[in-house]
Structure formats: structure tokens, C-alpha cells
């Protein structure tokens, strides 16, 4: 089976499972934990361990920590846009994506330099 199709299939399944788990729980702040579940990471790291080996997967996991730190900042900004400024969910999550990109690659640049 094509590797990209396999990635798509595994990623789609893990994300759907975590999304449904999140939908089941109340209160909403608890359900929100599942919006930051390692669903993409489970699929990608599993394939990286199987195809490229442990050192490659460890390097991906190391970078993932920086991406997750950028995600903390992203969630904080989205929360402020929604609660304080009453921006719609679609708009606030979309306009904050460049911030995630800048924060993640900025941290990567800082670490590597």
C-alpha cells in the first residue's frame, strides 16, 4: 500500500478516535484536553519507528516539544480572541495559525543556533 495513503488512513483514524473521546466528556474544559491529544504524533512516530528507526523518531519527538510549546501560546491567544474579543471560532483559530508557525520555527531557530 502507498505510504502516503497509509499515513492518511492511520492519521484520520487516530484523530477521529480522540475527537470522539473529547466529544463524550463534560465539562468542556476537560473535553478540550483531547483537542491537544497526540493523535498525529501517534500515527507519525509509530511509522517513523517502523520505517526509519529509533534515532529518527527521537529527533521528531525532540522537535515536537517545540511545536507543543508553540501550541500552548496558540491556545492562549485563541482563548483570548474567543472570550475577550468575541471573534468567531473559525476566524480566531485561523488567524492564530501564523503565530504558531512563527513561534515553532522561531524556537527551532533558537535551539539550532
Amino acid at each position: 500500500m502507498n505510504e502516503w495513503f497509509l499515513r492518511f488512513l492511520i492519521g484520520g483514524c487516530t484523530v477521529s478516535v480522540f475527537a470522539e473521546l473529547g466529544a463524550l466528556f463534560r465539562p468542556k474544559s476537560f473535553a478540550g484536553l483531547f483537542s491537544a491529544a497526540p493523535s498525529v504524533a501517534l500515527a507519525t512516530l509509530g511509522l517513523a519507528f517502523a520505517n526509519q528507526g529509533a534515532s529518527y523518531a527521537r529527533m521528531e519527538a525532540q522537535a515536537m516539544m517545540l511545536g507543543a510549546l508553540a501550541l500552548v501560546l496558540y491556545c492562549f491567544v485563541v482563548c483570548q480572541l474567543l472570550a475577550r474579543f468575541q471573534v468567531s471560532a473559525l476566524l480566531s483559530t485561523a488567524v492564530a495559525i501564523p503565530l504558531w508557525v512563527i513561534a515553532a520555527f522561531g524556537l527551532k531557530f533558537l535551539i539550532l543556533s
Binding site: 484536553l33 483537542s35 512516530l45 515536537m64 500552548v72
Partner: peptide, 24 residues
């Protein structure tokens, strides 16, 4: 409701840092 979800996601993201460090 979406803001509350983002509060949970923020806490989950801190957990995600731990996930990455454990795999590493």
C-alpha cells in the same frame, strides 16, 4: 464554549510537551 475548549487544549498542549520528551 469554544474558549473553554481552548483552555483544555492549552493544558493538553503542556501534556504534549511531556509526550515528546518521553519519546525522546
Amino acid at each position: 464554549a469554544a474558549a473553554l475548549d481552548s483552555v483544555g487544549a492549552l493544558l493538553g498542549s503542556i501534556g504534549l510537551v511531556a509526550f515528546g520528551s518521553i519519546v525522546w
